[in-house]
Write a protein that binds this DNA or RNA. Structure first.
Lengths: 191, 191, 191, 191
DNA sequence: GATGAATGAGCGTTCATTCAT
DNA sequence: CATGAATGAACGCTCATTCAT
């Protein structure tokens, strides 16, 4: 009924199929079928498959960013801020498993590498809060004096791994486990 | 000279091409060409592409396992053993970037999930040393009392991330940085 | 303002795009866009693409016919009449390159064959003057006693070729060259 | 049986279909079907459709060139040489109607324009005899002092037109008509 | 055993045409 | 009347796999 109904259907279908089967396990025809639209219709909304994937990721980023920052108080101590953000992140992932799986696929693809490059070089805004947090942590000598890239890896590497293991059913995360995992990440980066 | 010469050539060619271009950037015909064999010949050594990829990974695992365990002394204290293994691991990765890229691709694919399931459920041997190390760490109350899966993620998640960032050129690891990164991982899991 | 404004826009847009890019380089949607109308609107004026192309050609014919006949005096000697017509034709082509390019495309397509059949069989009026001229020339024994079709080919084959070469930049026609080319055509058909 | 059997089948099928229906009336799948091969097989012999068309034309050129030059004697007078070549040409066309139709399609396409450019600039060898003939004719003042391009158009424009009309059934050429047509072409270019 | 030509299902994409608004 | 979103058949092309040699 609404104007964006079809686009929404396509986005959802693409997200699901890519999450389930990866980029090449999600042919355009299959996406169209699951979305309940004609194959050509996708191309009214996205220039081609590559563009579709990139835009899908950006939409996800934009949608998730406010959710993760919700309740974030930059005046609070560093540790608290870190725990807040990482907890929000892991919660977002396990509550949106399809989105998470898609994001994972995205990061492990040429797109993801380019995106990471842009993020690390600061070309792209988006992870501002995280970046500020780490820079703040280093200058205040609360965090280890390591390249910011490594701090990112220490902080987020386990988060992604844990979220995946939960979604794949290898563990069953609850609030306590999440809290303890996030604190372990803090232990890794704190001085 | 030996019978396995051809197989070796195929393995090497497949490894390289998949590392460089990903699974779909490595058609069987291209692998055959680089290996210097006929396209059909591959199917004498591997039932099909999926099987080839799985066996490739297993071979890599078997080849790398001794390298990582080299100099490992189960009598040493837990911390030292952990630092030894994780340092060996990261060094293996950055010294064998092609193998690392392949392993990464493998983990981020349906194969990887199945493999992880087998590993975690103990169906497959291979990561025995790591498993023993963590079980030992938990029972001796040196490591955090977390599910072993989470300990794995805390210990290896950052290692993979850091190795990738090094290989992609986002950071330049040296022995000092490696040592400090591995210690940070220890901080994450130690009680 | 008039009712035919839209139709005119479509005709112009189609002509241009087909001249520039050929029949398959001119999708209906592109024609609609350049004409500044909706894609569906074209189908209010033309039953389908084939019909549109055919009608386009006919309109061109009707439009050009008076221009070519302008100043034509049926009382003048045959030679003079021929030179007049062929000069007018070649001038029309090089002064209306878009129309020429379209006509060329048209002739080299199934449409063109059908059209030629109709013309030669006399089913279609249009080239009456030319036909009369040649019939006159044969009966008066001024032109060679060849089938009228061959006379057409001798007279117009070079004209089309020369116009194309001029438009494509292979030669630069001027009035003198045109006059001499047309006279050469006369030499071909005159007894 | 022979190595080139399949290639030959593809060439023949492509030639026929393109001659009958034009370039876009001859999809690769249809060519494959008529050739009695799989769709993918075509791509073992030709890099893509464009390349196939270009190579088809070149093969035709190479095949026809000796046939047309057969019996050509450069010592004979210009007029005789011209009549010989143009007669041979028109005979080749009407005896090989499929080849002729293909060549026509080719010339009326972007490929054809590029080819014509190369020929006129002398970049490509092939029409050497014709070129020499015309240059000879001009320097000896036997032919009209017109740009060589125009002489080409006067000499070959009617040949193509007449051949097409014969193949399409608009006229029935015989040796006498051919001879008289070719002589008319000579009248057009001779001084 | 080894080969590589052959296959054809399947891919991403285009576009003439329709029809609800 | 006019629109343009929607369609889906059809296109050019790729590649895992087979099999006659």
């Amino acid at each position: 009924m609404a104007k964006n109904d079809k686009r929404e259907d396509i986005v959802r279908a693409a997200l699901e199929l890519i999450a389930e089967n990866g980029f090449h396990g999600a042919p355009m025809a299959m996406i169209a079928e699951r979305a309940g639209v004609g194959a050509g219709t996708i191309y009214r909304y996205f220039e081609n498959k590559d563009v579709m994937i990139t835009e899908l990721f950006q939409e996800l980023e934009e949608r998730s960013y406010p959710l993760i920052k919700e309740g974030y108080d930059p005046e609070k101590p560093l540790r608290e801020r870190f725990l807040h953000l990482n907890t929000a992140l892991i919660n977002y992932f396990i509550k949106n498993p399809i989105e998470f799986r898609f994001i994972e696929q995205f990061f492990n693809s040429p797109y993801g590498v380019a995106h990471r490059r842009d993020t690390l070089l600061g070309t792209k805004e988006g992870c501002d809060v995280f970046k500020e947090l780490f820079e703040d942590g280093i200058t205040r000598q609360v965090m280890k004096d390591l390249p910011i890239v490594i701090l990112f890896d220490l902080a987020f590497g386990p988060i992604l791994a844990v979220a995946r293991d939960h979604i794949l059913g290898f563990i069953a995360l609850d609030d306590v486990l999440i809290a303890r995992t996030v604190e372990a990440c803090w232990d890794a980066i704190k001085r």
